[in-house]
Amino acid sequence: MIPNVLSIAGSDPSGGAGIQADLKAISANGAFAMAAVTALTAQNTQGVSGIHLVPPAFVQSQIDSVFDDIQVDAVKIGMIADAEIAQAVARTLARRDVPIILDPVMIAKGGAALLQPDAVAVLRDALLPTAHVLTPNLPEAAHLLEADVAATRDEMASQGQALCALGPRAVLMKGGHLSGPDSPDCLVTDDVVTWFEGPRMPTQNTHGTGCTLSSALAAQLVKTNDIQAAVAAAKSYVASAIAHADQLNVGSGHGPTHHFASLYASHKETSS
């Protein structure tokens, strides 16, 4: 059976991040993708120019309508925007027994705030304890912990352990903000820290990588039921999407990753 994965996140009309990236990544990783929209954004590869929030009650209605009819095998949570929406999502999912991948979306690639300050406490107190996996980048982890941004691997692992103590079953610390030629991630589960290595790709087209990774992870976790195997598969998928990003011609800023690079390659091989 093909698993069903629900993304709860904001919309990016340029297609590189948010719900649009989630749907592509979930599909490319072999699951059926569904979506509940929390916010509409006006954005492109150069930045965010506007945000329109969906009423919390309607966010809840979207989620309930999916669960009431469809077997949901995993949930990915992305942009929740404000405290009322965060509370609505937390209340709705509290009634559901389903693995949750939580990507704490706070700041867009261009610097625009995507999470209002009063929502951080709700995210930390109500949603973190429900998460099977939390997937922060280094600035997001620091913001949640009210700490300095990790600058070393030891600091990454330490902050991952601190976040794990707040309730999620596992924390995947994304190391893309570390300096150097590599982009390592570390998975923290209780007292175990596992590193996933990878080279830094020479491209500016990395818009939506956090959305893409967490969505791929949700699909892979349902398929494998093995957190380490799921992380390895999701990281490999994102690395390929970034490596082939320059094949796309989308915008003049931070362009999107190539979500279907492997499928395009397979199609070319079959055609030839």
Rank of each mutant, 00 (worst) to 15 (best):
N4F: 12
S7Q: 08
I8D: 12
G10Y: 05
G15C: 10
G16C: 08
A17R: 04
I19N: 00
D22T: 00
L23Y: 04
K24I: 07
F32K: 07
A33I: 05
M34C: 10
M34L: 15
A36C: 09
A39D: 02
A39Q: 00
A42G: 03
N44A: 10
N44M: 01
Q46I: 07
Q46V: 04
G50P: 07
L53N: 11
V54I: 15
P56V: 06
P56F: 07
Q62L: 12
I63W: 10
D64L: 14
V66H: 08
V66C: 03
V66L: 08
D69V: 04
V72D: 08
V72Q: 01
D73Q: 11
A74M: 00
V75Q: 06
I77F: 08
I80T: 13
A83G: 13
E84K: 10
E84L: 13
I85M: 11
A86H: 10
A86L: 13
A88E: 06
V89W: 03
R91S: 00
R91W: 02
T92I: 10
L93M: 08
R96H: 13
P99A: 07
P99R: 09
I100N: 04
D103T: 00
P104S: 01
I107W: 01
I107K: 11
I107Q: 13
K109W: 01
G111L: 05
L114T: 03
L114S: 04
P117N: 13
D118P: 03
A121S: 13
A121T: 15
L123M: 15
R124G: 09
D125G: 03
L127N: 05
P129Q: 04
T130Y: 14
A131Y: 09
N137R: 12
N137C: 09
N137I: 12
N137L: 03
L138C: 09
A141C: 10
A142P: 06
L145R: 00
T152N: 07
M156R: 04
S158E: 14
S158D: 15
Q159R: 13
Q159T: 05
A165L: 14
L166A: 04
P168S: 03
M173R: 00
K174R: 11
G175D: 14
G175P: 04
H177A: 06
L178H: 06
S179C: 03
C186D: 08
T189D: 08
D190R: 15
V192W: 14
V193P: 01
W195H: 02
F196E: 00
E197G: 07
P202S: 14
N205E: 01
N205K: 14
G208N: 01
G210Y: 04
C211R: 02
S214N: 05
L217M: 09
L217E: 09
A218H: 01
L221F: 15
K223S: 11
A232V: 07
A233V: 04
A233Q: 12
A234N: 02
S236M: 09
V238R: 03
S240R: 12
A241F: 04
D246A: 06
Q247V: 02
L248M: 06
G255N: 12
H259V: 09
H259F: 05
F260L: 14
S262A: 15
L263T: 08
K268W: 14
S271D: 13
S272M: 11
S272A: 06
